[in-house]
Computed example of a mutant assay.
Amino acid sequence: MEQIKKVLLIDDDTVTNMMHQRIINKSGRAQEILVATDGLAALEILEQHISDNETLPELIFLDINMPRMGGFEFLEEFEERGIGANGQKIIVMLSTSLMKSDHDRAQADPNVHCFANKMIGSEEFLGFVEEALLIRPT
């Protein structure tokens, strides 16, 4: 079973991160899981990977509402810094928000693959892995 190299969880909720880590670990489809508790910490992780010439996460789960830097602010910086320039990663925006404006804003961002409700399940995660594998450079 083919694996992706890295998954990045960006969420300030410890329980959500633990549950997603459990699902990802149980699937056996990711070699490494990185966790950031806000957008700023996530940008630091990504920039460190770039600086160290390491593989960037192929799959990113991004919460909307977080302290210091939320999901939409992260996306603005992600774009501005050119981190997603190669387009070889999938960003899934996660939220419990029922606001149509959040859904519309996420769908309008070219870096966002899709909007999903927290918590993702095992089957949903496996679907995202398959999509990430399809866009992986050969």
Rank of each mutant, 00 (worst) to 15 (best):
Q21C: 14
I4H: 09
V15H: 15
L9S: 09
I33C: 01
L56M: 02
H49M: 14
I45D: 06
N17S: 04
I135V: 10
D12R: 03
L133M: 15
L98K: 13
P67V: 09
L75W: 00
F115C: 06
M99N: 12
V92C: 04
I4P: 14
F78E: 09
A36C: 00
I45H: 11
T16F: 08
E123M: 05
T16A: 15
R68D: 10
A106M: 06
H20I: 08
A85M: 12
G127C: 05
I64S: 01
D109E: 06
V129S: 06
V129M: 13
K6C: 05
N53I: 04
L46F: 06
M19Y: 13
L98G: 04
E32Q: 15
A36P: 00
L59V: 06
M1W: 04
K6N: 13
N53G: 07
Q48E: 13
N86Y: 02
E73G: 01
R22V: 02
D102Q: 12
E44I: 08
L62G: 10
G82N: 07
D63E: 07
M119W: 05
E73A: 07
E77M: 07
E73N: 03
D11F: 00
P67F: 00
A41C: 01
L94E: 00
T55A: 12
S51A: 12
T14G: 04
A42V: 02
L43C: 10
L133G: 10
L9D: 00
E32R: 12
I23L: 01
S27P: 11
T55K: 11
G82P: 08
I120V: 11
D104T: 13
I60L: 14
P137Y: 10
T37P: 00
D38P: 04
F125L: 05
D38S: 10
E32H: 12
N17V: 09
D38V: 07
Q31I: 02
F115S: 01
L94Y: 06
I64A: 05
L126G: 02
L62T: 03
E130W: 03
I24A: 01
M119Y: 12
I90A: 05
P67A: 07
M99R: 07
L40K: 15
L46K: 05
E123G: 11
L62D: 04
F72M: 02
E131M: 09
L98M: 00
A41I: 01
N117C: 02
E130K: 14
R29S: 05
N25W: 03
L40S: 09
